[in-house]
Design a protein around this nucleic acid. Structure first.
Length: 456
RNA sequence: GUGGUUGUAGCUCAGUUGGUUAGAGCGCCUGAUUGUGGUUCAGGAGGUCGUGGGUUCGAGACCCAUCUUCCACCCCA
């Protein structure tokens, strides 16, 4: 072996223990989603390139992994683009497919394509990997999983409320009850822009204020002015956005300040309705943050982001998009959804040691192998245990006892069962509890009920 | 994509202004215990110092390139 094998930057292998922990997160999420009536779907890892392009902004397009066409793709490419070293233009001609960048746009495509098979409102969840050609950092990978939950085909704000409840349920079950859920509404932001005379600069404004907690008010102000926004408007907008505290009071103050901006009032009413629809326990965690903007430009109403005090970036985000399917030819379909960042949640839970200890055990019972005759009997006993829902395995080789015991210990097996020559003759087993070290003789006939009693 | 940072045993890290045979802890393997893990004791294996070039009598250390890690920007889960 000349070179050590490796995997691409920003991708990872998952060892058994990591995989089990990841599955724990997915299983928890799945179970909560299904308890609210959401159903699973899957879409292909690759989409047609034009399905994805233009949906994530100019920056987003650059981060899409394009798949090189098969065959003699260069013969079809134009000479000018090759001559000019125009990578951007050339890539359009030699690539027709791309890896999906998120789950939301493929979902929109899915809805349009399968609209006749679906009944609306359609509530689905989707847990699959996505790929981004980003520079990797901590909590930032080139291949990572998203858990998306969306409702499409309903304008009701009850959907937003339900999603917040789902988020709360999932994080509570994972032991992350101390998350902060921040919400805002793009209509409010748009109204603020309007009343500050920045209507034409909405995109620039949202991008800048999204960084407020990072670069501070002055930093945001400078960035906005540098991008050509009129200074007077910038000042006014920033003053409004700074409002903080109890949400209903904040909205009241804001209402007095944005006179005439119809859009903002609509947004404020939406936020009020949403908050009223939330159970008390969830509302307590929700904070109205007017500085929350989110870059993805398809959001049109509520926007949601979940953070944790011990983690630098958001672990969940989403919002309402009024017309995502419009670009695929199906108009009037409003949707709202959130995306859980499974990999970040994993990193956070690992750092806080929140995974249950029992997650390590792959089987609860191990039979020591003493040779063919003994192993045959063990296979039967193991099958009996399995039929009672106890996971059991027989060590495959007649290795040294010490080695087999160590294997059991490493794997986190809770009970080791020893059937040697003596036991085989007498119809007995020696049952060893690995936690206490105690060992006792149990008749083979009574083994299953004895194990059930010890383990359950 | 821009700027910076990191890489030494399976893991976490030492390694002086360039100097001979590159170390530690943990883990791993063997034995004490051929029917008993986790604890204890004794012993052992494991490194082309990320990779490729260069400077030098001599490079783990200096220079260049490249890959990787992490960070900031950008953007985001």
């Amino acid at each position: 072996m000349a070179n050590k094998p490796s995997i691409p930057k920003g991708t990872r292998d998952f060892l058994p223990e990591q995989s089990l922990k990841r599955q724990f997160i997915f299983d928890t999420a799945r179970q909560v989603f299904q308890s609210y009536g959401y159903v699973p779907i899957e879409t292909p890892a690759m989409e047609n390139l034009d399905t994805l392009l233009g949906k994530y902004g100019e920056e987003g397009d650059k981060l899409i992994y394009k798949i090189l066409n098969n065959g003699d793709y260069l013969s079809k490419a134009s000479d000018e683009k090759i001559e000019a070293r125009d990578s951007q233009g050339l890539s359009m001609e030699i690539s027709d497919r791309a890896l999906r960048y998120d789950l939301t746009v493929p979902f929109a495509r899915f809805v349009v394509q399968n609209q006749n098979e679906l009944s609306f409102p359609f509530k689905r969840y989707q847990i699959q990997p996505v790929w981004r050609a980003d520079r990797p950092q901590k909590g930032r990978y080139r291949e990572f999983y998203q858990c998306d939950v969306d409702v499409i085909g309903s304008n009701s704000l009850l959907n937003e409320a339900e999603l917040l409840c789902i988020i709360d349920d999932v994080f509570n079950q994972l032991g992350l009850g101390d998350v902060t859920i921040r919400i805002n509404n793009r209509k409010i932001l748009s109204g603020i822009a309007e009343s500050a005379g920045l209507s034409g600069y909405f995109q620039e404004m949202t991008v800048a204020i999204d960084k407020l907690d990072k670069i501070g008010v002055d930093g945001v102000k400078q960035e906005m002015i540098r991008n050509g926004l009129p200074e007077a408007g910038v000042k006014k907008a920033l003053n409004l956005i700074k409002l903080k505290g109890e949400p209903f009071g904040t909205l009241k103050m804001l209402a007095g300040a944005v006179t005439g901006a119809e859009e903002a009032y609509k947004g404020m009413e939406e936020v009020r309705s949403l908050l009223r629809a939330l159970p008390e326990a969830v509302r307590e965690k929700v904070e109205l943050d007017l500085t929350l903007a989110r870059g993805l430009n398809y959001y049109t109403g509520a926007i949601i982001e979940v953070g944790h005090p011990d983690f630098p970036s958001s672990i969940c985000g989403g919002g309402r998009y009024d017309d995502l399917t419009g670009i695929f030819g199906l108009t009037g379909m409003s949707g709202v959804g959130v995306s859980l960042g499974a990999d970040r949640i994993y990193d956070l839970m690992e750092a806080k040691d929140l995974f249950p200890k029992s997650i390590k055990a792959s089987s609860e019972v191990l039979f020591v192998n003493f040779g063919d005759a003994e192993a045959m009997q063990c296979l039967k006993l193991a099958a009996d245990l399995r039929s009672e829902g106890i996971s059991a395995e027989v060590y495959p080789d007649g290795a040294k006892m010490k080695k087999q015991m160590k294997y059991a210990d490493d794997k986190g097996v809770r009970v080791v069962i020893i059937v040697g020559e003596e036991e085989l003759k007498n119809g007995m087993t020696a049952v060893k509890n690995m936690a206490t070290g105690d060992q006792e003789l149990v008749a083979q006939k009574e083994l299953t009920s004895f194990i059930l009693q010890t383990l359950r």
